Amino acid sequence: MATGLRFGPIRQAVHICVDMQGLFTGHSRWAMPWFERVLPEIHKLVSLHPSRTIFTRFIPADSPVETRGSWTRYYEKWQEMTLAHVDKTLVDLVPELARYVPPARVFDKRVYSPWFSGELASTLHNADISSLVVSGGETDVCVMATVMGGVDLGYRIILATDAVCSSSDEAHDAMQKFYGQRLSQQVETAETVEILEAWSESGRNGH
């Protein structure tokens, strides 16, 4: 499996931090056991370039009847996680990261993919962004949707392997292998320390 930053310096990049919200930690029904373990690595990435950080937030449906298709079935199963029932403060980013907004920005979404509305793609295009550093959760759901959409749009994707997590260890491990093997020409997988060093060096050189 190919690992490390193989395609040169990190330039014209933003960090997309996926769904690090109260919904996915603590005693929530959607909690990811490794959330707290990856949070320090994510914090390092955010604090390096806060103005070049974009947080996404997954916003649950108000109720199952306001959805359609398989989303209705999904929210019938997870009715206690709809906005009609869940503690709405859990939709917020965790405090350790929320304090960086602004200058960091937030994009809300009602589905797994942050690309669905077109707003994120338009923002990145207008800013002449070509590379995306990706962190957050879940490795096999919303992170995957972020990565795959970014690949389709032609971005260089850099996945911070120690800054992503899932509620399924098996699926997390499988996706790490998938990113590194099957998408080896479009996705680079590297640990946070390597990304920080490369991105810091690019910044010192004016990129």
Rank of each mutant, 00 (worst) to 15 (best):
V65K: 05
G118M: 07
R105P: 05
S70M: 12
S167P: 00
A145M: 12
D169S: 08
V141L: 07
V101N: 13
M144Y: 04
S130G: 03
H49R: 15
T146M: 15
C165F: 14
E66W: 03
Y74C: 02
P64K: 01
K88V: 13
L153V: 00
G137Y: 02
C142N: 04
L83I: 04
T53M: 08
S167G: 07
T56I: 11
G150D: 04
Y74M: 08
S131D: 07
K109F: 13
P64S: 00
P102Y: 09
D152L: 06
A171F: 15
A163T: 04
E76F: 05
D140P: 10
T161K: 12
S131H: 04
L83K: 14
A160P: 11
A160M: 11
T67R: 00
P60I: 04
A171K: 15
W78C: 00
A61G: 01
T82P: 05
V91M: 10
C165G: 11
L153C: 01
A61C: 04
F116L: 12
V134L: 15
H125F: 09
D62Y: 10
G136I: 08
Y112D: 01
G150N: 04
E66V: 06
G137D: 00
A98F: 14
G69S: 06
V86E: 11
L93V: 09
D62G: 07
G69V: 06
A104W: 10
E138A: 12
G118F: 11
V111M: 06
G149D: 02
L90Q: 07
K109T: 13
K88W: 13
D62H: 10
R99P: 15
M81E: 14
S113M: 10
L120I: 13
Q79V: 10
N126G: 14
A160N: 05
L45Q: 11
